[in-house]
Design a protein around this nucleic acid. Structure first.
Length: 362
DNA sequence: AAGATCGTCAACCGCGGCTCC
DNA sequence: AGGAGCCGCGGTTGACGATCT
């Protein structure tokens, strides 16, 4: 008989706390390539100093391509309340009824909003301010404005992405499925985006209010709200980083030169450590290249699926750099790497597995 | 302006249950 | 059959931003 349960990992040797973009990138890259058949072994194989549980949680709750972010709609909230009546705190079961929602997210929403709201209704206790309460419900949305506009505008794209992902994953390996799902939807997205590309400058960078309600299923309003947001909505990865950096200006890339770096996808610690330590990168991301793509008339088929898929990798790359830049800027007025690069990841081999090139624009 | 309090949510922890050997 | 290993779930914590006093 064992006394107690063996710890899942050596707590002293694993990193804990918030995930950095570099770690996210590493995890995504690994799962994209190898899937996640064994969470316990995954961190070691991926070169992550995390316990398998932590990786799994991060993936399921945050990094999965089909995870829906943003505020809960009224319908979703009602569904949660209804299901909670019958199922109780079976969050994963409730989550299975809400596409794209995680048990953790639902649990949080229940504990922070719904429980209180129900309690006050049942006890007939007048809420301090019903409108305030409901605005708070969407406040998670208001606090991350990007999500507000995204969530209304992104619905179709996300559903589509999910569908694509499901379809592909039925017939292909997860990696390929993911790559193709993302790129297929991205293609559709670009078409849609170009239809609204007339005067983006007139649109606010951020929504000044929460006027787009959480149950707004009409995408037209969001369609023109913010192209960056839409880009973010397509690539959830960008979306959630945007939520942290909504106020950051995004520089557009100049030209892409042909300086090439090899990025090993395997656990090349040197490379990943380099990522961790790089500083002074432009706050450029996917959207830059997407805009570039939409402006290009012959974009169409030329834009490879792999490259599409790499866009969100690119975004994470840049987020990694941005984060380091912030860290470094606290310590030194002069960045360590004064001229850094907008990086475009280009797959060296067929499915982009193996090595990537970083094309630097300097 | 500054400290206190509140709200949110990502992440951690420990346990139950399933699967494999 | 039962022990070991792993995954997934639900409860809880803690960091951080927002709001209040």
């Amino acid at each position: 008989m064992r006394k107690g349960r063996a710890p899942c990992c050596d707590k002293d040797k694993v990193k804990r706390g918030p995930w950095s973009p570099a770690e996210d990138l590493r995890l995504i890259t690994f799962i994209q390539k190898h899937g996640h058949s064994n969470w316990r072994a995954l961190p070691k194989q991926a070169g992550l100093l995390r316990c398998g549980k932590s990786c799994r949680l991060r993936w399921i709750n945050y990094l999965r391509p089909d995870v829906k972010r943003g505020n809960f709609t009224k319908e979703e909230e009602e569904t949660i309340i209804r299901l909670h009546e019958t199922l109780g705190n079976k969050w994963s079961k409730i989550a299975s009824h809400l596409e794209g929602r995680t048990d953790n997210e639902i649990k949080n929403v229940w504990n922070t909003h719904l429980k209180k709201r129900l309690a006050s209704k049942k006890g007939n206790i007048p809420q301090k301010d019903e409108s305030k309460e409901s605005s708070m419900t969407s406040s998670s949305s208001c606090s991350s404005i990007t999500f507000v506009s995204s969530s209304s505008g992104k619905r179709n794209l996300e559903v589509e992405l999910e569908q694509q992902w499901d379809e592909r994953s039925m017939t292909k390996n997860p990696t390929e499925a993911f790559a193709i799902a993302v790129s297929d939807v991205a293609q559709g997205f670009k078409t849609e985006l170009s239809n609204h590309s007339s005067s983006p400058s007139e649109e606010p960078k951020e929504l000044s209010s929460c006027s787009i309600s959480s149950n707004n299923t009409n995408s037209s309003q969001a369609d023109v709200s913010n192209q960056d947001d839409q880009a973010g909505s397509l690539f959830n990865f960008k979306g959630f980083y945007d939520a942290k950096n909504t106020s950051e200006e995004v520089n557009k890339p100049d030209q892409i030169s042909d300086t090439v770096f090899d990025i090993p996808l395997e656990s090349d610690l040197d490379f990943w450590n380099m990522l961790d330590s790089l500083g002074s990168f432009q706050s450029d991301g996917i959207q830059s290249h997407e805009v570039e793509g939409t402006q290009s008339s012959n974009f169409g088929e030329e834009y490879s699926k792999e490259a599409e898929n790499n866009n969100w990798l690119l975004y994470l790359e840049n987020e990694t750099k941005n984060e380091n830049q912030k860290k470094l800027s606290k310590d030194a007025a002069e960045p360590l790497v004064p001229e850094m690069y907008d990086m475009v990841l280009e797959p060296e081999d067929e499915m982009g597995m193996g090595h990537y090139h970083i094309w630097s624009s300097s």
